[in-house]
């Protein structure tokens, strides 16, 4: 009798484990972000990365949902907690302002991994083991843009338009200044903070003021720069982009954009979670590991030159 029963249990176990392997439940990600997923900046870059991974792994193996416009921190915290309680494998809290909430939430859900950025803080010092973090070295991209900017500027005056002087925006701006100075020590970089991530109007007028005071190359961060790009386009100033490829917004004036490719952080993170590590790692996004990329505008001067050489319109070395 006992033998029959144990044989039955064994068969049941085998069948059910085969069923589990056969079903291969997809990896489920929830993504909480402060602005909209079509902001042409911070949120969109992560959304694009998740789409890329979904295309790579297939919808059967990777699914994600998002909560956009979570600029209210306590709403975001509620969303994060709700996703975790629904058994998502990874909850991405895409904003450094969410860190405070994660510390409270993560310990309650040991089977869910969390990720946030930009920061190098995984709270492992507080004994929390299921939080990853990611941090783009924005200053590297800023430096590249700065070098190019200094070469292209005829007036030697360049402008940077940022939201508030902190986080990624601060790092990108400092890198840009360094790049400019290394190339042309006599150049002048004027930096203006609009005090807001969303004040398109002030960003536009800042760009105008900069151009009026002699700047011919501009750059900037956050979703409000759309206003500045518009002005640069109208006034014929050169623009350097950040976060996503901003060339489609003004093909004639964008030279290059620093793109953050979050897949470089997401891929190893997903691998780690699938092999049982739920946190503790900081993923850097640098030029070296491809987390930062420089997107050259195909319709701009550099892009046209490259294309010209490739298709033979430009003869070099003859």
């Amino acid at each position: 009798m006992n033998k029959v029963l144990s044989g039955f249990v064994l068969v049941a176990l085998i069948v059910s484990s085969i069923a589990i392997i056969g079903m291969a439940t997809p990896f489920k990600v929830a993504f909480v972000t402060p602005s909209t997923i079509n902001d042409s900046a911070w949120s969109q870059s992560m959304y694009d990365a998740l789409m890329t991974i979904q295309n790579e792994m297939g919808e059967g193996n990777f699914q994600f949902v998002y909560s956009e416009n979570m600029f209210v921190i306590s709403d975001a915290a509620a969303a994060i907690r709700d996703y975790a309680s629904q058994g998502y494998d990874l909850v991405i809290a895409h904003g450094s302002q969410y860190g405070g909430s994660l510390v409270d939430i993560a310990p309650d859900f040991p089977n869910t991994a969390f990720a946030w950025g930009s920061t190098a803080n995984t709270f492992s010092d507080q004994g929390i083991t299921n939080i990853f973090s990611y941090q783009p070295y924005s200053e590297q991209g800023g430096y590249v843009n700065g070098v190019l900017a200094a070469k292209l500027s005829e007036s030697g005056i360049m402008g940077v338009i940022g939201p508030i002087e902190t986080g990624d925006a601060k790092r990108y701006t400092e890198g840009f200044e360094q790049g400019v100075m290394a190339t042309n020590p006599n150049a002048k970089v004027s930096v203006t903070w609009t005090g807001s991530y969303s004040d398109v109007s002030l960003a536009a007028e800042t760009a105008r003021t900069m151009i009026k005071s002699g700047a011919d190359v501009l750059t900037g961060t956050s979703q409000m720069v759309i206003g500045a790009i518009g002005v640069a386009k109208k006034e014929g100033a050169i623009w350097f982009g950040y976060d996503v490829d901003q060339a489609p917004l003004a093909p004639k004036i964008v030279v290059s954009s620093v793109i953050v490719d979050w897949t470089v952080a997401l891929r190893p993170m997903i691998d780690a979670i699938q092999s049982g590590t739920m946190g503790g790692t900081v993923y850097d996004l640098t030029l070296a590991n491809g987390g930062l990329k420089i997107a050259v505008n195909a319709e701009g001067l550099v892009g046209k030159t490259i294309e010209g050489i490739i298709n033979g319109d430009i003869k070099v070395g003859e």
Binding site: S198, V200, S201, L202, A204, Q223, I226, G227, G230
Partner: peptide, 12 residues
């Protein structure tokens, strides 16, 4: 006329 774009809460 002035900004030539739209995004949420454009008026701020």
């Amino acid at each position: 006329a002035l900004l030539n774009t739209f995004q949420q809460n454009l008026t701020n």
